[in-house]
Design a protein around this nucleic acid. Structure first.
Lengths: 215, 215
DNA sequence: ACCGTACTGGACCGTCGGTCCAGTTGTCCA
DNA sequence: TGGACAACTGGACCGACGGTCCAGTACGGT
């Protein structure tokens, strides 16, 4: 981050102001209709400053998201069980999903703002590999917990499925109406059922569309 | 559709050309970077025509999606089991999910193009109620099948969760690489586990985690 | 054949993401 | 303390895009 120099005081102040302004706008307006100019104006800085600090719209959203997710990140890596290390994987997983729903519920618009772009670099093939760090972390964590508990499952894919929930508009809508608990409950049900399922129980690869690629 | 007059021949021709051009562009380029002008040019019509027929970007995507989903719609409502009526709900559900994955896999970019907007009217509070008809239908169908099999579950929410899968960028990426079978398998596993789970097994509404990180 | 109208298409508009660069200001070092 | 230098600032500017408008076109009914 800070290579060599420290961050200049005014820069830090403006950076904070921009993030704050974005937060407020996000809380009040639909995320896809807040413009960078609006953000700049609301923060009381020039547009150039915003772009200088955050590169582009996505960068701004990423930074904001990263900040919001920080507490959770710490709770998971160094906090007490069941979120932190120490509890059995199953408990950690359930606790983590609860916590993630919580974060998302408190940041309704933000996830939507990131949108699909969360994991995508959209410019002329930048590096299609790198996902949003927050997503990356969440996904890795869930993957690891699932596979610890059930090594026979496709943990990685299932983690994507679970997280996909949080990008869904109808579900975001529910969250807006305060139905976070309902979502958390269903997620618990789902995961519990998954972890309890007997291993060979699901019918294996049936022959799909003939020209569907294998793997 | 055709109230009173028939659709003019040239209009039909152009409409088809536009849809076709959109398809091709969608297949070649990232969906968020194809512009309406491009579509118009590729279809060999003026921009006005495109807007006249489809209203706006979303309308175009909707129309295309509706067309793509038509076959599935018919298979479900009037086709033979297990997709159509007649088979037990569980079989129908599994078959339907397979089929949906198939449709999505064959239309990679399209879902992403619709994006979150699938269910949202974005203009100044138009009618936040109405979802994309295709989504609506898929959701209703899944909800109904789940609740027939397991009336104790929150079928509606679970249906949203299952469908959310298809809007996820990482998963769309997998689909692009031909991993449709892998996704279908995991979905089957998930649903089977869910339907098999013993009723009271999942811990009921615990009072969210006390040490969930704040803010 | 001819009339009314639905359809057409390109000029046009306002907005927005992003760039640029000249001026400013914080920080380091002597 | 002061000077030099780079980092930061911010607003003018640009190209692109979604969407509107409307004069002209040509389809289809009669």
């Amino acid at each position: 981050m800070t290579e060599g120099r420290r961050e200049r005081a005014d820069a830090a102040r403006n950076r904070h102001a921009i993030l704050l302004a974005t937060e407020e706008l996000l809380a009040r307006h639909r995320p896809e209709q807040i413009s960078m100019e609006q953000v700049a104006a609301a923060a009381g800085v020039g547009k150039g400053t915003v772009f200088h600090r955050f590169g582009n719209r996505m960068g701004l959203m990423r930074a904001l998201m990263a900040e919001r997710a920080l507490a959770l990140h710490e709770a998971v890596t160094t906090g007490p069980p069941p979120l932190g290390p120490g509890a059995p994987s199953r408990e950690r997983l359930l606790a983590f999903l609860d916590a993630v729903v919580d974060v998302v519920a408190r940041n309704k618009g933000l996830l939507a703002a990131l949108g699909h772009a969360v994991t995508t670099a959209h410019k002329p093939e930048e590096d299609p590999r790198s996902a949003h760090p927050v997503y990356q972390f969440w996904h890795d964590h869930i993957t690891s917990l699932i596979s610890q508990e059930r090594s026979d499952l496709d943990a990685e894919l299932l983690a994507h499925i679970l997280l996909a929930t949080l990008h869904s508009d109808p579900i975001l809508r529910l969250l807006e109406q305060g139905d976070g608990q309902r979502l958390a409950d269903s997620l618990r049900t789902l995961v519990t059922a998954l972890l309890n399922a007997s291993a060979g129980r699901t019918e294996p690869r049936n022959s799909r569309h003939p020209n569907a690629p294998q793997r």
